[in-house]
Every structure is written in structure tokens, then in C-alpha cells.
Amino acid sequence: MKKYQLGEFEEIVLLTVGVLYGNAYGVSIKEEIEKRQKRKVSVGALQSALRRMESKGFLDSEFGESTKMRGGKRKRYFKITALGKKALDYNMQTRLDLWNQIPDVAFEFKLC
């Protein structure tokens, strides 16, 4: 379903936002993904993924506190919406379905 379309990177960002519940803003999300996935994340890719998902309705955001380190600028905290949850469920389910459909014999790797 087109409605729940999620890219691979988008899915990871969405999941990470869920993991960091209550503390999900740009820097923390980036650090979390880099730590867990051991991959480099560019600010541009992350930010555009976040805004894109927000406009799709998978994410919601609000301004939070500011710190001195940020030059007095506020953080924007993200959280998953109900629709975002559905999208994650849908994605997970379709993958699971596919996984379950694989016949056992396909995984029987023999030296031949």
C-alpha cells in the first residue's frame, strides 16, 4: 500500500525515534543510528527524512528547551504518530509474511 510506503532509511529513522522516546531530536537520533547501525549519517539526509515523514503524518514534532551549546536555539523533539505506528506495523508485517512464505528447503545449504 502506497499509503504506508517507507524507505529503508526512513524506517530506521522512524524506529530510532521510537527508541529514543521523549529525547528524539536531530543530534540524538543521528548519534543513536550511528552507534547502533555503525553507519555514517549525514545531517542533510536525516533532516530531509524527518521532514518528509512529518509531512506524511508518520511523525509529530514540538519545540523543546534550548541549551547554551546550541547557541540558544531550541530543540525539535519528534515522536511517532498513530499513523507512523501503523506504517511500521505494516512494513514489519509484510516482511514477516514474506519470511514465513519461504519454504524450508530454500535454507538447506549443502555443500554440493
Partner: peptide, 11 residues
């Protein structure tokens, strides 16, 4: 989007 992304960049 400017304020928070700028903040992130500062961080």
C-alpha cells in the same frame, strides 16, 4: 525549520 536545524548544527 531553521531554528532547530541550526541548533543541531551548532551542537
Amino acid at each position: 525549520f531553521q531554528e532547530d536545524i541550526k541548533g543541531d548544527l551548532e551542537e
